[in-house]
Computed example of a mutant assay.
Amino acid sequence: MIALLRGSHAVMDFDDQAQLDGSQVENRGRGGIPGGGLAVGGGAAGIIALIVALVFGFDIGGLTGGGGAENPGVQPSSGNLSEKCQKGTDADQDEQCRVVGVVNSLQDYWATKVDGYQPAKTALFEQGVQTECGAAESAVGPFYCPVDRYVYLDLSFFNQLESQLGAKNTPFAQAYVIAHEYGHHVQNLTGTLEQSGGEGAESGSVRVELQADCYSGVWAKNAVDTGFFAKPFTDADIQEALAAASAVGDDSIQQKSGGQVNPDAFTHGTSEQRVTWFTNGYKSGDPARCDTFSGSI
């Protein structure tokens, strides 16, 4: 388990008496990939190449032959976190409970903004997982599957975020990642997720990803109003999110993998764009200001 980072880093402060709903997060434990699963290239370059295509993504269908009837079966849950994660004090002390608190806050916020909002659960896993979008290994990073409406997260990704991509593994960096994935869920409910596709600096894929970054910032601005946090996020918290957003820009990852920056291969946006759109969402606090589909980005 990743320890809570303190010292010079900001620490998210949950309201001690906030009532957590642990049923929104499943702990699926360690899983394998029946039928072989996704073949992952060796070394840092192979992992980074996967992150280029998939981190903070939503469509992993086809990685192992797709989901649906061809899927060998969704891995059963080994239990939700209701017993373990009950109050805000638990979220302050335990990483899995912190995920529960962030997820609870995200869902409470978006339920006030999306008519007929339908919750999306989060599944924590280790090594590999089966989903209705197909099978995935941990190296693909966090992702959202629109078929089963789950966010999938191996917490070891955050160590990778720090060791390979240069961002700090801090509580709010983690919250940014989770909020981005729930941004994809909102897009799925509202229909904008369908506009994703292709590669390139102006592609639908880039526009979808940048909107999810913006939605992440919008939630951050309004999170304290959900009642799960004791106070608004600090400037230090926001800087952690911005550092994580910058680290996963297409140009930054291409450079870290030893290649040249190739805008024609962009799928998520540059570091500057990701920082800009998160900031737009945070400063405005308004989902309507997250239109990445009109004009240039």
Rank of each mutant, 00 (worst) to 15 (best):
M1H: 15
L5P: 12
G7L: 11
D15P: 03
D16H: 10
A18R: 06
Q19D: 10
L20N: 06
D21I: 06
G22I: 03
Q24G: 15
E26M: 14
R28L: 15
R30P: 11
G31E: 04
I33T: 14
G37P: 07
G37Q: 07
L38G: 11
G46A: 01
I48M: 13
I48H: 09
A49M: 12
A49Q: 13
I51Y: 11
V52Q: 15
I60A: 05
L63T: 01
G66Q: 00
G68Q: 08
E70W: 13
G73W: 04
P76D: 05
G79M: 09
S82H: 03
S82K: 12
E83V: 15
G88S: 02
A91P: 09
A91N: 02
D92N: 15
Q96D: 15
N104F: 08
S105D: 11
S105M: 04
L106T: 03
D108A: 14
Y109S: 00
W110M: 04
D115G: 14
G116Q: 09
G116M: 08
G116T: 09
P119L: 08
A120L: 12
K121M: 14
T122E: 10
G128D: 04
G128N: 08
V129R: 04
Q130D: 11
A135C: 13
F143M: 03
C145Q: 11
C145T: 09
V147R: 12
Y150D: 14
Y150N: 14
Y152F: 09
S156T: 13
Q160G: 13
L161G: 07
L161N: 08
Q164D: 15
A167T: 03
T170D: 07
P171W: 00
F172E: 06
F172S: 03
Y176K: 06
H180V: 07
G183C: 10
G183H: 06
H184K: 05
H184E: 06
V186R: 02
Q187F: 00
T190H: 09
E194N: 13
S196W: 00
G197L: 05
E199V: 15
G200W: 03
S203F: 01
V206P: 04
R207C: 01
V208D: 03
V208W: 00
E209Y: 01
L210H: 01
L210I: 04
C214G: 01
V218N: 05
V218F: 00
A220Y: 00
K221M: 11
K221L: 06
V224I: 13
V224L: 01
D225F: 04
F228V: 05
F228L: 12
F229Q: 04
F233R: 04
T234Y: 01
T234E: 00
T234C: 03
D235S: 12
I238L: 13
A241H: 02
L242N: 02
L242R: 07
L242Q: 05
A244F: 10
A245E: 07
A245P: 07
V248H: 01
G249A: 07
D250Y: 00
D251K: 06
Q254P: 10
Q255S: 15
S257E: 14
G258Y: 11
G259L: 00
V261E: 05
A265H: 11
A265L: 14
F266L: 10
E272N: 15
E272Q: 15
T276F: 13
T279I: 06
Y282R: 09
S284P: 10
D286C: 12
P287T: 05
P287W: 00
A288D: 15
C290E: 06
D291P: 04
F293I: 05
S296N: 14
